[in-house]
């Protein structure tokens, strides 16, 4: 064939250009992630390597006094704060989300989905500063009037976060429920089971791993959320004694202090260590999601 003579014809060049461009884009993704991990890790580890702070002190020390004469970098209040608001938010949001998903797929599959789908999408679309603003001007005054304390604190943070992660859990749960084979339900109904019996004994146990995926994704979002939490949690660097006491999270202390510290100072480095913790938690959440997905496949 003639084409054998010249290797580079028009279509070869086109394909080459296309492939090079795509390779560039994919390579960029790889470079971004590698440099992110590298830069955050090298900054975050300097607290322990050159700063002389022990890993134990950082993770379990409760005294956060980075600017004292003998500074101490106990980040436990922030780490525990992050875990606390995340778990509380998941505890509040999960039942609500599962109900919403059941409503969309099992109770009134037609208009239930038509009603809740846009609601969920809009909730997901509201920016986090707006959630923070509403938390500050609605939830905090409400808590202040109803419970002891100033209103700001762990409870306010968890409530704001729970609304923010509702859409994540609901949409994953609804997808899982919708993917359930029809005959599974029918055979349960055929045995004379009521709808709730079917839901509680057949539907929920079967879809639990998928729903848990949604819960973990929601928790990942809650753990990393910065501004909304920072605005309502009070930002006191202590482990709170009650849910209505001011506290801090990793994200809130980074948000507040990063701009006021000089690069390279041990105070600043400690904040980077917290960013590293956030990053490692992201890996953990992604790993957990993958684990659940794999279990779900079997």
């Amino acid at each position: 064939m003639k084409s054998k003579k010249s290797r580079l014809e028009k279509h070869h060049i086109e394909d080459l250009v296309g492939r090079s461009y795509m390779a560039f884009c994919v390579l960029l993704l790889i470079v971004i992630i590698i440099s992110m991990v590298y830069f955050v890790a090298s900054k975050g580890l300097s607290t322990f390597i050159t700063g002389g702070v022990s890993v134990g002190e950082f993770f379990f020390g409760t005294k956060w006094a980075p600017e004292a004469d003998t500074p101490s970098f106990g980040a436990f209040p922030f780490i525990s704060g992050s875990f606390l608001v995340t778990l509380l938010a998941a505890l509040i949001a999960s039942p609500l989300s599962i109900c919403a998903a059941l409503f969309m797929t099992e109770i009134v599959p037609g208009w239930g989905k038509k009603l809740l789908q846009p609601v969920i999408e809009l909730l997901a679309g509201i920016p986090s500063v707006v959630y923070g603003f509403i938390g500050l001007s609605v939830i905090v005054p409400f808590l202040r009037d109803t419970f002891p304390g100033q209103g700001i604190g762990v409870a306010a943070g968890a409530l704001v976060l729970s609304v923010m992660i509702l859409p994540t859990i609901t949409s994953v749960a609804a997808d899982a429920l919708a993917a359930l084979p029809q005959n599974l339900k029918e055979s349960s109904f055929a045995l004379g089971a009521t709808r709730w019996q079917t839901i509680s004994r057949v539907i929920l146990p079967t879809t639990m791993p998928s729903i848990m995926t949604g819960v973990v994704l929601g928790m990942a979002r809650a753990f990393g959320e910065a501004l909304a939490v920072q605005m309502v949690i009070g930002n006191a660097p202590f482990v709170p004694k009650s849910l209505f006491e001011s506290a801090s999270t990793l994200t809130s202390v980074i948000t507040l202090s990063m701009g006021n510290t000089t690069m390279g100072s041990s105070y600043n480095n400690a904040l980077w260590s917290m960013a590293l913790v956030l990053m490692l938690m992201t890996f953990a959440f992604v790993g957990l999601v993958r684990l659940l997905e794999r279990r779900n496949k079997i």
């Binding site: 064939m1 003639k2 084409s3 054998k4 014809e9 279509h11």
Partner: peptide
């Protein structure tokens, strides 16, 4: 192998 499939 080596045939220009696109031409073909």
């Amino acid at each position: 192998p080596g045939t220009d499939v696109i031409k073909l």
